[in-house]
Simulated scan of single mutants.
Amino acid sequence: MTEQQRKDYFDKVDKNINEFGYHLTNVFESKERPSFFYSTGIYKSFNLPEIFIPSLPHGLCCEIADNYVKAFKDKRVVPRNEKLQHLSGRFPIFLIDVPTSRLTDYVLSSVWYYKDGNYEYVQVIYPDTQGHFPNDAGYDYDQEILGEFRL
């Protein structure tokens, strides 16, 4: 990426945060890691943790992130390790805390945006195709879990 491309990208991040309150980044799968999706700006704009979603399609990630902001921006409280039915029209999810130190190699826009400032992240935990979550008997999906998940 050239210096101009980098500047243009971070200008877009700033513009989206100023206009919508957050910017959403989708990172495609590579040989080193599966795809993932994350927000930047939610913490500053709404005093809610940023959201990190591994390995789901882009449109579904956008739906979950948008519903997350709508559901919690006025409450300013995000439930952790509780089954949530209303963030996706397809299946329930859990939100878990993830130390930002575990995400430094993933959430580069947030690292740039917050600099040395404080911010938080939650990770979306979703079921396999049979509706089983990690720690359920019969769970059959390779979802990277970066925080502590308990049922």
Rank of each mutant, 00 (worst) to 15 (best):
F91R: 03
S30Y: 00
V27D: 04
E63R: 10
H58Y: 08
E148Q: 12
E82T: 12
P79T: 01
F20S: 13
R80P: 02
P34Q: 14
G41W: 05
R102S: 15
E19T: 09
K31S: 13
K115I: 01
Q5M: 13
D116C: 03
V13I: 15
L95W: 12
D97M: 00
Q85M: 11
R6N: 13
F46S: 06
G21E: 00
I93N: 04
F72G: 08
G138S: 08
L95I: 12
I145L: 02
F94C: 00
K70I: 13
P99Q: 04
Q143S: 04
V122F: 14
Y38R: 00
A137R: 15
F72L: 11
P127R: 00
V98I: 13
S110T: 12
Y141A: 12
P92E: 03
S39G: 06
Y141C: 06
E82S: 09
Y68F: 10
E29G: 03
L146C: 11
E50K: 05
A71R: 14
F46N: 05
S35L: 07
P34L: 13
D128I: 07
I93T: 04
E32Y: 12
H58P: 01
S39Q: 02
I51T: 04
P54E: 13
D74H: 06
E29H: 11
R90S: 14
Q130G: 03
H23W: 05
V69C: 13
E50L: 09
E19V: 09
L60Y: 08
I51E: 07
I17H: 11
R80C: 04
Y114K: 05
P99S: 11
L108C: 13
R76E: 15
V111M: 14
L103G: 01
S39E: 05
Y9D: 01
K115G: 09
I51C: 08
H86V: 07
K31C: 05
L48M: 06
N118R: 01
I53D: 04
K15D: 15
D11C: 06
Q143E: 10
E148M: 10
F94G: 00
P99F: 06
H23E: 07
L103E: 03
I64S: 03
L95A: 09
G117K: 00
Y126V: 06
T40W: 01
Q130V: 07
V77K: 12
V78L: 08
I17M: 04
G59C: 10
P57Q: 14
E19W: 01
Q123F: 01
D66T: 14
L48T: 08
S55A: 11
V27H: 04
S39F: 02
Y141M: 06
R150I: 14
S55M: 06
T2G: 13
Y38A: 02
Y68Q: 05
G147A: 00
E3L: 09
D14T: 13
L84M: 11
E19M: 08
E148C: 11
L24M: 10
N47T: 05
Y114E: 08
H132G: 05
I51V: 15
G138Q: 10
S88E: 09
F46Y: 15
V77D: 11
P134D: 12
K75D: 14
Y22T: 09
D8T: 11
A65K: 03
E144Y: 06
Y119K: 07
H86S: 07
Y119N: 10
I125Y: 03
D136C: 07
F28V: 14
H23I: 03
I125S: 07
I42E: 02
Q143T: 03
